[in-house]
Amino acid sequence: MNTSAASVETDKWDVVISPKSKVINFNFAELWKYRDLLMMFVRKDIVTVYKQTILGPIWFVVQPIMTTMIYYFIFGRVAKLGTDNVPAILFYLGSNTLWLYFSETLNTTSKTFADNASIFGKVYFPRLLLPLSKVISGMIKLFIQLILFVLVLLYYIFVRHSVMPNQFIFLFPFLLVLMAALSFALGTIITSMTTKYRDMTFLVTFGVQLLMYATPVIYPVSKFKEYQTLIWLNPLTSIFETFKYGFYGKGSFSWGWLGYTVLFTVTTTIVGMVVFNNVEKKFIDTV
């Protein structure tokens, strides 16, 4: 009697650690259980940046201001790339703010395994938390930067009367989600591929820079008549164009290409999570 009762009881294991892993094994319940840790990581990312500074979080807006000024002179004044009749300062500030979010999230998530090997080697928690925390902390920085953008936007709307947002502005939260998912997905794929073979890491840094020129950050799509399709094939293009169309009321918008971006993002996110899932269990042996 006792033995049978015991054997029934011993079958109820909480955790079984074994070498075989399912290809698709997303443990969302576990992620939820660790939500406090996620928030802690986010807090750490934000707080540590401006520790021991006097201006604190204000430093987050310095970066977009500086790059906007540089772009204004180089691409606006010297190269005269044009901005679809949108005031140049506003044009560069908007797309720069978005681009900074995308590139920083991609850069940090693509180094998840390499940068956190010392923590990963000592303690278990769902590894996906770290790239997720980067996505969220980047988003908080983005919101701080958007305050500046909104102020400048209001100035151009009500004082200068030079731009007029349209109803597509309401797509903005959706655009943010798309961009967050895309940078997260690409980042996790890259970090998973670079745990054993580091070759890819060399490509990432300048690959992200090149990607900026393939994305309508410093120019409007309408500038390049011949390469239209090529530029739209970049899934980021429709995000940036929809953003500009909604906020400035100028530029190009296409439901078709936005749908393409959604499809692209969903696919890469699934691929990213599958790859990450397969690597996270053993990467510590090879990183």
Binding site: W13, V15, F120, V123, Y124, K281
Partner: peptide, 14 residues
């Protein structure tokens, strides 16, 4: 502690 996974065999934990 699930930092890495085994090559063979398994661990059951309650």
């Amino acid at each position: 502690s699930r930092v890495t996974s085994p090559s063979k065999g398994n661990i059951k934990v309650k």
